[in-house]
């Protein structure tokens, strides 16, 4: 029986997971107000498609959940959806030009809102211990329901992060040497 992923895809996914784990440190080293913990997932989505990227996102958060905080494991479905939607967008030519990349990152953000909002609202009571909790509390005070407040906050927090992550992944894949791009058929969809 043929395995689901080739060995090359498997090693790419492993590298993608490691990127996710390490590049987040880069953002904190540069003191930038973003997570960029999904660049590896985007890179895998662009090079190997939605299924490989879905598994990459899922495994990243499961490993994080085991090694740092179980909170990350609770958000594993969100990381998986980022990979799935980014991979589908890449397959549909969503990474062929700057406007398309921006549209793709918007679609990824919307998918994140759909999946992350119930997890954050029901599993963590709408709070995560970040500054965004103040926005949730403020919107609640203005009369919004908890789910609406959380959805608005998740959208706001993730939009910039996912746009930046998608742009960086796009630029990185475009800038890969032809020798490396040729190893991954999915790279042909990225221009």
């Amino acid at each position: 029986m043929n395995p689901l992923f080739s060995t090359r895809t498997l090693t790419l996914m492993s590298a993608g997971i490691a990127f996710n784990m390490v590049l987040g440190q880069l953002a904190s080293m540069l003191k930038l107000p973003i997570f960029i913990d999904a660049i590896g997932t985007f890179v895998v989505a662009l090079l190997a498609g939605p299924l490989a990227a879905l598994v990459t996102g899922l495994v990243t958060n499961l490993i994080w959940g085991v090694l740092t905080s179980p909170v990350a494991a609770a958000f594993a479905p969100v990381a998986a959806v980022i990979g799935l939607v980014a991979g589908l967008c890449a397959r549909a030519g969503g990474f062929r030009s700057l406007p398309r990349v921006l549209l793709s990152s918007l679609l990824v953000t919307l998918a994140v809102v759909v999946v992350a909002t119930p997890i954050r609202a029901y599993l963590f009571g709408g709070a995560t211990g970040s500054g965004a909790d103040f926005v949730v509390a403020y919107m609640n005070a203005l009369g919004s329901k908890l789910l609406e407040s959380v959805a608005f906050t998740v959208f706001g927090v993730n939009l910039v992060d996912k746009v930046v992550s998608a742009l960086i992944a796009w630029l990185l894949v475009r800038g890969l040497p032809e020798r490396v791009r040729a190893q991954f058929p999915g790279a042909a969809q990225v221009r």
Partner: peptide
């Protein structure tokens, strides 16, 4: 990020 990613992806094969 670029040198790190390109360096690592070059090793994947």
């Amino acid at each position: 990020a670029a040198p790190l990613v390109v360096w690592t992806l070059s090793d994947v094969g």
